[in-house]
């Protein structure tokens, strides 16, 4: 019964979770929240993680009721993500792994999301939509790889939402996407925006420039409300995501769809994806904010799968990497 501790800090969340054979024993997390109108920068984010990583580690052990000697392996996010925050968290993972004499496991962040989604929902072989502030990919498993069927060709969908929130000075607490979702519920009018699906891929930067350009003009002319803009942006972006997910499901013949990543806890996205799945006779799997949003348990869970299949990461190979594609990982734990 291996017990794995997982360290995550690739973006503005620092989380440490402990998993034992599919059971999440603890999963504390802190979020670096910036003032309205501001994004999070690597140096500031690393300082945030530095200031609370050891407290979060203590909490993870205490909540799980475990001592360091009970841990069998130490997993950490190797990439992709922001360099400075990744290094900060990796350094603590390497230090405790050596102090405790446990093997290290360098985990691909995207694979962490997929494995956590599979664990929590019980989806067996889903077509995965991975949507967050840094990533937008449609993924399906085949022959020991999570293969990317479609992805963004510029910015991530969550980045598009976050940057739109900055234009309207929407609060980043608890997250810009959550606040956009609440405002969108009060939207009455659909403002037409560019719709940019390109084959299996999507593009969001042109939509962002367009809405940045028209937002203040339309608002000051009284042509729409901020709530209308939130609603219109969500409807447009999510329709694009549903379209490419459906096309991937048609390719793979899959009858399961799984949404993971921070944007995946948006209930309107889940609703739209649910309608598409129902029409195809497929099942939708999604998780709530505890496991959709970056957390330590997802890194522990992917690490647990790696460890169980015999993988470990040597200390000298434990360097972090800002770029690390989902399909670079050999999935040794699935048939």
């Amino acid at each position: 019964m291996p017990i794995v501790i997982g360290f995550e800090g690739s973006a503005n969340k620092i989380g440490i979770g402990i998993v034992r054979d599919g059971e999440v024993l603890s999963n504390p997390r802190r979020t670096y929240v910036t003032p309205p109108g501001q994004g999070f920068l690597p140096g500031d984010t690393a300082r945030h993680h530095r200031s609370c990583v050891l407290t979060v580690l203590r909490e993870a052990l205490e909540e799980a009721g475990l001592k360091p000697q009970d841990i069998d392996a130490v997993a950490f996010t190797k990439g992709p993500g922001m360099g400075a925050p990744l290094v900060t968290v990796a350094i603590v993972a390497r230090t405790v792994a050596q102090l405790w004499g446990k093997p290290l496991l360098g985990v691909n962040h995207c694979v962490g999301h997929i494995e956590m989604g599979r664990l929590v929902t019980g989806a067996k072989n889903p077509t995965v939509l991975y949507v967050s502030g840094g990533n937008t990919q449609v993924i399906a498993y085949s022959e020991h790889r999570y293969r990317i069927f479609g992805e963004t060709i510029d910015i991530a969908v969550g980045n598009c939402l976050d940057r739109f929130a900055r234009v309207l000075k929407i609060s980043n607490d608890p997250s810009p996407g959550y606040n956009i979702e609440q405002m969108a519920k009060k939207g009455q009018k659909l403002v037409e925006l560019p719709y940019t699906v390109k084959g299996m891929d999507v593009s969001f930067s042109g939509i962002l420039s367009h809405i940045e350009d028209v937002a203040h003009r339309m608002l000051s002319a009284g042509q729409c409300t901020p709530e209308d803009l939130c609603f219109s942006l969500q409807e447009t972006l999510f329709a694009m995501l549903v379209e490419i997910t459906e096309r991937a499901m048609a390719h793979t013949g899959s009858s399961e769809a799984l949404i993971v990543g921070g944007v995946g806890c948006n209930e309107r996205l889940q609703e739209m994806m649910g309608i598409m799945c129902r029409e195809r006779g497929a099942r939708l799997f999604a998780t709530d904010e505890r496991f959709c949003i970056d957390n330590g348990a997802m890194i522990a869970q992917a690490g647990w799968e790696m460890f169980r299949s015999g993988q470990v990461t040597a200390l000298e190979d434990s360097w972090i990497t800002q770029r690390y594609r989902t399909d670079e990982v050999e999935v040794t734990w699935r048939d």
Partner: peptide, 16 residues
């Protein structure tokens, strides 16, 4: 980074 390593050693050491 060095100060983070030292603080981690103080809180989660000594080595087993």
């Amino acid at each position: 980074h060095l100060s983070l390593v030292v603080e981690t050693m103080d809180l989660f050491g000594p080595p087993m």
